[in-house]
């Protein structure tokens, strides 16, 4: 990690959703604030700033992290992927997003970007998870609106394991 003096602002450069971007930041600036306020990528949300809710989850070099527990300087030179990257350029939803829509897996949508990013990472590594594995990943997120039912159904649908899961849960 780069060292920056506490009193200085430094230019931080990252690759955000495939594009090289940079902005100034104090060393203490959180990655979540840097993304939202310095880079204008407001799709990533902040729900607690203490690492519990998962709203702020983004990918750094492909792995899901809490951006509220990460300093902007820690992302220097890395590839950061956020919810804004998921849909196609024409606005078409990707399969995971579409499954969320089909299963009413969101209401206010505030928790949703973080959950989408966690599952983007997870399904990339484990494309056909069991319901128990999905629940395990989802338990790192808080959602106050949905009661979670639709979210589990959505991930089951997109991972093609819905039929199996239904069989299993009977």
């Amino acid at each position: 990690m780069r060292r920056v003096d506490r009193s200085q602002r430094a230019t931080i450069s990252i690759t955000l959703n495939g594009r090289q971007v940079s902005a100034e930041a104090e060393p203490r600036m959180l990655l979540s604030d840097f993304l939202r306020h310095s880079l204008g990528a407001t799709g990533t949300h902040v729900g607690c700033e203490h690492g519990v809710c998962g709203c702020c989850t983004v990918l750094i070099d492909g792995a899901a992290v809490r951006s509220c527990l990460t300093l902007a300087v820690q992302a220097e030179g890395k590839a950061v992927t956020t919810v804004e990257s998921l849909a196609g350029a024409d606005g078409r939803l990707n399969a995971l997003q579409q499954a969320f829509k089909n299963n009413h897996a969101l209401q206010c949508g505030f928790c949703t970007p973080g959950i989408l990013m966690s599952f983007t990472d997870f399904l990339g590594r484990n494309p056909t998870p069991s319901e128990a594995e999905i629940v395990e990943v989802l338990s790192g997120h808080l959602c106050r609106c949905t009661g979670y039912a639709g979210i589990v159904a959505a991930v089951l649908e997109v991972s093609g394991s819905k039929d199996n899961a239904e069989k299993r849960s009977v």
């Binding site: 990528a41 407001t42 799709g43 990533t44 949300h45 956020t82 919810v83 804004e84 998921l86 849909a87 606005g91 939803l93 997003q97 969320f100 829509k101 969101l106 206010c108 949508g109 505030f110 949703t112 970007p113 989408l116």
Partner: peptide, 12 residues
């Protein structure tokens, strides 16, 4: 509502 909210295009 969903497409925008799923794409990080909500306006909170």
């Amino acid at each position: 509502e969903d497409a925008a909210l799923l794409s990080g295009r909500g306006r909170y």
